[in-house]
Design a binder for these strands. Structure first.
Lengths: 225, 225
DNA sequence: TCAATAAGATTGACAGACAATCTTACAATA
DNA sequence: TATTGTAAGATTGTCTGTCAATCTTATTGA
């Protein structure tokens, strides 16, 4: 072995990288829902040992990103519409609460960030590029709200839920007119928060979720073929 | 296809049993918060191999029942009061919602169960036995509500959150007068649900959480010594 | 055509090993 | 004495290899 000069400050463990890679693959749709994930194959493509891979799978199982069927192994769950709907129902409650709290307590610096982000989304939605840019700006817009709602549990819970319906978002964003409508809704949220109007912030956030749900339902039914 | 009578004796995997045993140990306070859990020791006392144990630990980590610090291993997290408070805030929202939905849709049979359970709690709280009986009847009372709220996500989320503050409940239940007050609150919830009064059910459930939080705060501060 | 069996694939679980890293105690130096 | 450096021990991170239990699929037999 040669010198191990190693200036890295934060080196992720193989474990952590494995979880992240798998999570990313699931969320981005590399693994289609319903598909079986064979351990040996994953080990090969990830270059990790089976014990380590299995640890990673347990983490993802607890996040509900995979199902582990006894003696059949892990598979990507199919999201039923009912399940998605229930997630939207909880989001309506919690995102409304988050927006209200955020309106009451977000510091000025982050308010500016929020506006910047909103503008970034507007640009992304105008130039009819791929939906990925729209999704990432949407995500960071709401991430700012969550970070500033003063309740980490709400933040954690919603982050976990969002992951599960993320691929629906990708589809519904591409519905004609949805991006524009989405921008209007986010504007309303931003305006209410800026005005420190908690009631209005909650209402606007809830309306956004409701509309997102309806769009997702359309997308979901269109995908049924 | 033959008849689908499922005579399977549910044989738990070693994996599952390991997770359950560890979870139980953490929730019942066998492992004090802050303590380090040494893998080799756990393997010995549980009689399982290290890879298997580590899988179990990853599951518990995702449930937030343990922290895994890199190169230091797992430890039982200390719950700060702020964190507990945030959990109660989310519970207020979600349990209120669950009670309201339950009032709207619970079938008659389960309504009867609810009343039976309430009565069991009353008996447990009268006979000044150990708090464990009170806690288990309380748990099943709310479990009935959650099962009948028509939203599995709410159910899952709350179950996960409850686990984390469970030991606070044990302490606060033993505060003078808390059991009696608790009975009154649960009665109110049960009555509202029976009357199919969604508004009142939500309100009663929220008040219960608020009172539980205050009791927990007292217990928490008393434990600070 | 249907049922029974056998072969193959895959998971469940274990043991053992070794390097990397952390902790602690101790020694050495200023 | 206080601080720094070092060495020993403990513990985690990760790998390889193994074997039994179970599921799936194909083949065979009636």
């Amino acid at each position: 072995m040669t010198a191990t000069i190693d200036l890295r400050v934060s080196r992720k463990s193989v474990q952590q990288e494995t979880v992240e890679k798998l999570r990313g693959a699931i969320l981005s749709g590399v693994f289609t829902p319903g598909i079986r994930l064979v351990e040996a194959d994953l080990c090969n493509s990830l270059g990790v040992s089976r014990p380590l891979l299995r640890e990673a799978l347990r983490s993802l199982q607890a996040e509900r990103l995979i199902d582990i069927v006894p003696n059949r192994g892990p598979q990507v769950p199919r999201l039923s519409w009912r399940e998605a709907e229930e997630i939207y129902e909880v989001r309506e409650l919690l995102e409304g609460e988050a927006a209200a709290r955020c309106a009451a307590m977000i510091p000025k610096e982050d308010l500016a960030d929020l506006a910047t982000n909103l503008e970034a989304f507007r640009r992304a939605s105008r130039s009819s590029e791929t939906a990925s840019e729209q999704i990432s700006t949407t995500s960071s817009f709401f991430a700012i709200i969550l970070r500033n709602c003063g309740n980490k549990i709400i933040e954690e819970t919603l982050t976990g839920l969002q992951a599960r319906v993320n691929f629906l978002r990708a589809r519904s964003m591409s519905l004609p007119g949805r991006a524009k409508q989405s921008y209007a809704e986010m504007s309303a949220i931003c305006a209410a928060i800026t005005a420190r109007d908690t009631r209005q912030a909650r209402k606007a956030a809830q309306e956004h979720v409701i509309n997102a749900r309806n769009a997702a339902k359309q997308a979901f039914e269109a995908a049924r073929d």
